[in-house]
Amino acid sequence: MKLLALETSTEACSAALLLDDHVIERYQWAPRGHANLILPMLDAVLAEAGLSLGQLDALAVGRGPGAFTGVRIAIAVAQGIAFATGLPVAPISTLAAIAWETGRRQGVDRIAVALDARLEEVYWGTYRAAADGGVLLLGEERVCSPEQASLPEVGEWVGAGNGWALYADCLSRPALKTWWSDYGPTAEAVARLGALAYRQGRLVGAEQVLPVYLRDEVVKQRSC
């Protein structure tokens, strides 16, 4: 299968082309550089494989949570490509992508992801490695203070995501073995999880490709 993926919800910007098991990726740490970089990156991975959009089976996109503007860039790009080509899209959680990336690097099973949500909160999701190579969300993703983040079941857990570097003291629990803060969501992780979604038929059309912000109270107060 051939799948094109993009991820711009954190300071990193990345694009990946999955060709069965082989991945071609472009990745750059680029705060505020996503708008300039993402299409050239997508163009480059296709060019390297000598493929055009018409030869693909699907798209996958990091749908958030993350920086609002970054998430919307990825979503609007995916919407545009999906509308123009008719390709189906797998919207992938950025928290799941971090869990997958951490699981792959460290061979761990229970992963508690905390992504910095600013305002002294984290985007929080707890995952287990799944038999199909993906990750399984336990409970729900949410935005909360580090103190309110909870582990859903007993067992040995590891932490992942940049929230751990900021709030390790508040996030730590007795069941927690260790944490890694430097695995972010990558387009490759989005592509791998997208391929699983493709096999399971969990794809959507352009109009259903929408951001997941988790934080929905964005207006402080109403003016009089």
Binding site: L39, A76, Q79, G80, I81, F83, T85
Partner: peptide, 12 residues
């Protein structure tokens, strides 16, 4: 939003 959508449509 419009820029990302528009530029991507044209690219695709």
């Amino acid at each position: 939003v419009g820029a990302a959508l528009g530029r991507s449509l044209a690219w695709a």
